[in-house]
Amino acid sequence: MGTFFQKAADYTKDAISAGKYLLQGLAVTFDHMRRRPITVQYPYEKLIPSERYRGRIHYEFDKCIACEVCVRVCPINLPVVDWVMNKETKKKELRNYSIDFGVCIFCGNCVEYCPTNCLSMTEEYELAAFDRHNLNFDNVALGRLPTNVTTDPSVIALKELAYLPKGVMDPHELDKNSPRAGKLPSEVSVKTIENNKASVGEKT
């Protein structure tokens, strides 16, 4: 009987907390309603993609060992690794490598699992082409680096919402050196390092 009441109590607690979270969510949506639209004049102004942005994949031909791990972890077995077995050296010889970005879902699995780190994700997202076959990037195209938004002289780079100071919504006319909300990783780590040092000092 005790377990039954325990279960019932847990269930009620869960139900109440679910209701609480629902109300929190509603409050967030409600809060969003007072925010006004902010327009980024796209081709002239661009948002700076965040550090972990998953854009077009960059690939280094020389590092690749043709292990096909990327093919196996890809949800759709997308990367094409074209290699031949060299009979003399008993080694694989890589001839071509390509990824079709018309099919890729930019999940980043291949990047995550590549044993030699020859794959990486770039910030490039402007992949529009007139012909969908142009989206099938070979190893040369995959090896190109995209133009950085911040270094492009024809573009005004704007900070994303998460990089703005607290309470600021509009990235226009913002002081370049204004800090983002919260602490930088370096600030946090210095403090933790100091704490660690203090604790170590106590011990010795």
Binding site: T29, H32, M33, R35, R36, P37, I38
Partner: peptide, 10 residues
């Protein structure tokens, strides 16, 4: 209108 407001559209 409300959907637009919640998504910061017009």
């Amino acid at each position: 209108k409300i959907s637009a407001a919640a998504q910061q559209r017009v």
